[in-house]
Computed example of a mutant assay.
Amino acid sequence: MNLGPQVTDLRWILPNKVLRIKASDSGRLEGVRYSPDQLSNFLVERNNNSFEVKKTYLKAKTKITRKQVIIDKDAPNLYLAGKRTGLSDNIIMKLSYVFQWDISFVLDIRLGDTFTLIYADLYVASKKVKDGEILAAAYTSMGKNHTAIRYEGSGNRSNYYTPKGLSLRKEFIRDPVHFSHISSQFNLRRLHPIHNRVIPHRGIDYAAKHGTPVVAAGDGKITTSKQNSAKGKYLVLRHGQLYTTKYLHLSNFASNIEAGSSVVQGQVIGYVGSTGLATAPHLHYEFLVNGNHRNPRTVKQSKALPIPKSRLQDFHEKSSRFLTELSLIQGKAIYANAENNMEK
């Protein structure tokens, strides 16, 4: 069956999905029905000696959900605290993406920190069928507040902004591996665990499970995609004329990743492994400025671009509701915590 791009969905049928085929008594194909997801149906039906293609979409209703996630000793990271609060894996991951330019979820999270979020869920016939987008979120740590508001800018592209209209997006994200922990810091006087002598450690090691996705820290082009006995499988990305990032000890490269490929920030480029001189699965991540190694944690990034002045008033009008709701949720949590402390 070749009906052009209209039947592209049939080339990517996923496991556990149902494909319904209709045939005549003589065995002639009469039609095919396939639902790529819970919001769409794909139908191919015979019309004499040809086939007609239809794709229909179910009307989903949006339900706004408000949650607050508290980091404590029983749930010391975002994932555990989020699951305890009832968040899906998808929403937890999206929340980590919202603040990935300003917050290291490996180093910056502290006991007592809170995440407040407002997000949309999609329902069909009173049944939740899909996680929607995070509309607003706030992260509070040691008295400092980070706030993000989702806003659709030019070209119908949505991004997250501060209450003043500054984009949270920056040249580089803080951690190229989410939900990991740092096993070795940037240290020019580190004692090497294998060679047992002082060898400069010109990067950061992120320990994570074998196969954990590794993402590009920024937009760029892959200049090296190789493997050797020391670095294992590794990638080198060039970001313009000034910056270079390196990703070592990968278990494998992502599909279509090779020297010469262009990548965008946040794109999966490989997977955590222990190839080369590695004692356990981890990513060794290096950041270079003009060919010189720098600590990825302390490199200064360019200022975020603001919303154009022509759209700033519209942004403030639409964001004011979410800012008020975030404040109310945070205020109720503070009051509840105070009451609990008084009861103790």
Rank of each mutant, 00 (worst) to 15 (best):
R84W: 03
I173G: 03
L117P: 00
Y34S: 02
I269S: 07
N341D: 13
L166R: 09
R46F: 07
E325A: 12
I199M: 12
S302T: 11
I182N: 01
G82H: 08
L288F: 05
K130H: 06
G203A: 03
I173C: 02
N41I: 11
S88N: 07
E343G: 00
P281N: 02
G82L: 08
V69F: 14
Q330T: 04
G27N: 10
A75F: 15
T85H: 09
R238A: 15
H195M: 11
R321Q: 08
Q68W: 08
L168A: 04
P163R: 05
E325C: 02
F179M: 07
G4R: 06
H201G: 00
T116Q: 05
V264K: 14
A60C: 05
A336D: 14
R110K: 15
L188Y: 05
A60S: 15
N159Y: 14
Q267P: 01
N159I: 02
L87H: 08
N16M: 12
E343V: 13
G132P: 01
L328S: 13
A278E: 00
I194V: 15
S320P: 01
P281S: 05
R294D: 04
V129K: 08
K73G: 07
I92G: 10
A336E: 14
G266T: 06
L323K: 11
L166K: 12
E52D: 13
G260N: 07
L188K: 08
S302A: 11
I334C: 04
I91N: 04
A136E: 06
S302F: 07
D205W: 00
R11H: 11
A138Y: 02
Q330I: 02
D89R: 14
K170N: 00
Y119I: 14
L14Y: 07
T275C: 04
T140R: 15
F115C: 07
L78W: 04
Y335P: 00
N49H: 13
I194T: 13
L168G: 00
V32W: 02
G4V: 08
F186C: 01
R202L: 11
Q100H: 09
L288H: 09
K318Q: 13
M342K: 12
L19M: 11
Y79T: 13
P308A: 03
H192P: 00
K318E: 11
S40H: 09
L39R: 13
L3S: 04
H293E: 04
S274C: 03
I149S: 01
G220T: 02
Q301N: 04
S184T: 01
K128F: 10
Q227N: 12
R11D: 10
